[in-house]
Simulated scan of single mutants.
Amino acid sequence: MNKDSKIYIAGHKGMVGSAVWRALLGLGYTNLIGRSSKELDLRNQEAVTQFYREEKPEVVVDAAARVGGILANKRDQYGFLMDNMRIQNNLIQGAQEHNVTKFIFLGSSCIYPKMAPQPLKEEYLLTGPLEPTNEGYAIAKISGVKLCQALREQHGKYFVSLMPTNLYGPNDNFDLESSHVLPAMLRKFHEAKENGNVPVTLWGSGTPLREFMHVDDMAQAVVFALENELPGYLYNVGTGVDLTIKDLALLIQKTVGHTGDIIWDSNKPNGTPRKLMDVTQLKKLGWEASIGFEVGIKETYNWFIQKQC
């Protein structure tokens, strides 16, 4: 891939897309293109086809998706399934029809079965039932993985799917109705501190185990997949290390400086008991995450505070 290769980053204003954009710019790539959702509705097949026809990107990174936490997914399974299938189907079909040479499809660790053995290996895909609370999103992403696999095997296309663990960092979604657990905690603890260190109520028991990776590490994994010819169609991307939700809460509470109580609402769902990615395959090829968790949390909190001002 040349430094002037035309690279389209779908979802370039989101957390992952913007991180990929920063990473490529930092490495000297000069021909990046992006469209906001207002400029290009990726759910509209005709609009996406016209975009491909006019812009002719050589490389596509699909970081566009409708995402949300447990509450948002549970409330609108149909919307998450339909919107994400439309987005990825249009992008993948357009890439195939307009001779895109490299396509990176980004998904999520939720594609794996709820009770799959830990850590999660790529081979566990489609070996058991999914977590019910985000089944719609997961099924959409699984279909995207399989589309990319089929194009790779049937037509020799360099279509690679990267499945990240839970991501966090700049440009994350901190809305309490639709955000994931880490940014939601950051905001809850910050607001509680600002209100006199009142107690913070969190969902579940705090016992589930989760893995988190800074979004800039994810961006570097995308760059690695673009600059190297990876032999497989599906790769996990993570740190290979997890912690309990309770320990996450304590770390965020310490980072924010909140001194009040933490109340666990056990009437709320925990979600999957554990989600740890087996990152052996990508590590064997020469890539691994490098940003320490405590450092990443501090940087993300500082970014959040700056945006609040």
Rank of each mutant, 00 (worst) to 15 (best):
G128I: 01
K121E: 15
M115K: 14
C148N: 02
Q93G: 04
N90A: 01
Y137T: 06
M85K: 12
K157I: 00
A138H: 07
I92P: 02
P129K: 04
A138C: 11
G94N: 08
Q93M: 13
C148V: 06
I142S: 10
E135S: 06
L126R: 08
F103E: 06
P119D: 05
I92Q: 02
L147G: 02
M85I: 13
T133K: 11
I142C: 03
R152E: 06
L126G: 03
K121I: 14
V100L: 11
Q88M: 15
S108V: 00
I104S: 05
H98L: 11
S143G: 09
K121M: 15
S143E: 13
I142F: 05
L147H: 09
G107K: 02
A95E: 05
P113T: 08
P119T: 02
K102V: 11
G156K: 07
E153T: 11
N89F: 02
G94S: 14
L120I: 09
A116E: 00
I87F: 12
T101H: 04
M85C: 12
P119A: 02
I92A: 07
E123G: 10
Q88I: 08
E122T: 09
M85N: 13
F105T: 00
G136M: 07
A95H: 04
G107I: 00
Q118S: 08
I104R: 01
N99W: 01
G94R: 03
K146L: 07
E122P: 08
F103T: 08
E122G: 04
N89P: 03
I111K: 11
A150T: 09
I87W: 09
K121H: 11
I111Y: 10
G144Q: 15
Y112M: 08
K146A: 02
E131V: 00
Q154W: 11
S108N: 01
F105A: 06
Q118K: 15
G94L: 07
C110E: 08
M85R: 11
A116F: 00
A138E: 09
P129C: 08
N89K: 02
P132N: 14
Q96I: 14
L126W: 04
K146N: 01
L147C: 10
S108T: 03
G136W: 01
G94K: 11
A150G: 04
V100I: 04
G94D: 06
R152S: 07
E123S: 14
P132S: 10
I111C: 04
T101L: 07
E123T: 13
Q149E: 15
L147T: 10
N134P: 10
L120G: 10
E131L: 01
Y137W: 05
P132E: 15
Q96G: 06
R86N: 10
K157N: 00
E123P: 03
M115T: 09
H155L: 04
Q93P: 08
Q96S: 14
V100W: 00
I111M: 05
G144D: 15
T127P: 01
C148Y: 01
Q154I: 11
F103A: 06
E135A: 01
Y124R: 11
G128Q: 13
V100Y: 00
